[in-house]
Design a protein around this nucleic acid. Structure first.
Lengths: 251, 251
DNA sequence: CTACCGTACCGTATCGTGTACGGTACAGAG
DNA sequence: CTCTGTACCGTACACGATACGGTACGGTAG
């Protein structure tokens, strides 16, 4: 289940993200607000996953009617957009010495973000959410790459590459937990149910390398060691490549 | 919208993937079949996206009632699983000289696969679909990394890293098209609608680097050059890192 | 040839979505 | 007190997946 966001008018979405509406509201007593709704949405998604996020459930958790939400938020897509932007603010902004330490820090912070909010992986990254928190984070992350010889486009490409790797790693790290909640089946249970059947059908003669490697990976996975190591190992490789690029630009 | 797959019994799903059921069916005249259903599903997803894939629409395109599908397929999740497995068979299997050429070939083939079937990006990669085509592809892709000094787990990690990069690149490359279909808005239209508002709110003083780099990336994007280049550039970096690893293992 | 029965197919119903529309009730202004 | 704008919500609709209980027919047993 990949959720698409921001259904309609971009200007409307942006106004919401940047809170431009100046909700004066003399009349009536608004006990609801965009922030309360967004907070409730984040809580719900954190605990039960994106699939469980419905307007009805958000409204219930706030003790209001479903349609009341639409006074503050144009629709579900936009709500998710604001949730995404809001959550970016929780990443750290420490300045590190040098681009390599900076990118390592950025990678770790983003990985932690995905761990706190696994549902971010379920949101389709189709059109970037251009909210204030996203902008601030983007600015911070680029700042550590500024003035070391890379072009603007290269800075963006490098950052994108690192963040992409983080996202892949996050998938590996949180997949088990998310899938377990989604399907109600432990990885172990799933394997136990699948294994006997696979035995009869997965011919090691037809797939010799896959069988051997798959087996080894399965064993390594049980020691719960592989995903973290894979993250660090991939990051090192990337940074080495980036280092070479920077050196070539510095000449 | 990320679609989750394979709802229920793993054994049932695997039996479906490997076509173990031996549908003898003396009685009645089955003009329907798993393959026909899967083909229809792939066609529908190719042209209209995963979001448009509903049991009703698949049934309609086959000229049968919705519930008839359930005679052959346990549910929508399992249908998607079979679709995913089926589509893997279309990737090339040419043997290349050396691991670097092999990985480059594998990366390109996978990128092409995503281009042919963008909906693959919308399927949650939660639990690998262990079908015959996936197994065959995995085996082929690993074979080119066998016997060059890497451990089994390392072989898998390297492959995963490359495929992850391909997936990220595929997102960049196809995002525009998919999002356009999903939202009915061109990137250009979206920007035109968003730009005037962003001007008023996106303070270059607050986000100096982001503003500069974002602008440059936007311009580069218009020349439709960046994503392909980003794919190649990232791949080179990864392969350099892998080369270093292999050298260190060869000692 | 008839009776039977297993199976392919499907009509209907249930429950869950997002959200459009038309109220209702209340707070503040005149 | 009247008027009006707004916060909130009840209901309805158009989808979605899929459980359940038929129906109709082809092959087989007698």
């Amino acid at each position: 289940m990949i959720e698409h966001t921001g259904s309609g008018d971009p200007a409307r979405t942006l106004a919401l993200l940047w809170r431009t509406q100046e909700r004066v509201s003399r009349k009536g007593k608004p006990d609801l607000s965009v922030d309360r709704i967004v907070r409730a949405g984040i809580e719900l998604a954190d605990s039960d996953g994106l699939k469980a996020l419905s307007m009805r459930r958000v409204a219930e958790s706030l003790g209001v009617g479903t349609m009341s939400l639409y006074t503050y938020v144009p629709g579900k897509g936009e709500l998710i957009d604001v949730m995404v932007d809001t959550v970016q603010a929780t990443t750290g902004r420490e300045t590190a010495q040098g681009w390599r330490a900076h990118l390592t820090y950025v990678a770790r912070e983003n990985l932690a973000l995905y761990r706190r909010h696994p549902w971010l992986l379920q949101v389709a990254p189709s059109r970037t959410v251009l909210g204030p928190q996203v902008a601030a984070k983007y600015d911070f992350e680029l700042r550590g790459l500024d003035g070391i010889g890379l072009s603007d486009v290269e800075m963006d490409s490098v950052l994108e590459l690192v963040l992409g790797h983080v996202q892949n790693s996050a998938r590996g790290l949180t997949a088990a937990a998310v899938t377990e909640k989604e399907t109600g089946l432990t990885d172990q249970q799933w394997w136990d149910a699948a294994a006997p059947f696979l035995m009869t059908v997965f011919d090691p003669a037809r797939y010799p390398v896959a069988a051997r490697v798959g087996g080894a990976v399965g064993e390594a996975h049980q020691s719960a060691f592989s995903p973290e190591h894979s993250f660090e190992f991939g990051l090192e490789m990337l940074l080495d490549g980036v280092g070479r690029l920077i050196e070539s630009r510095a000449l």
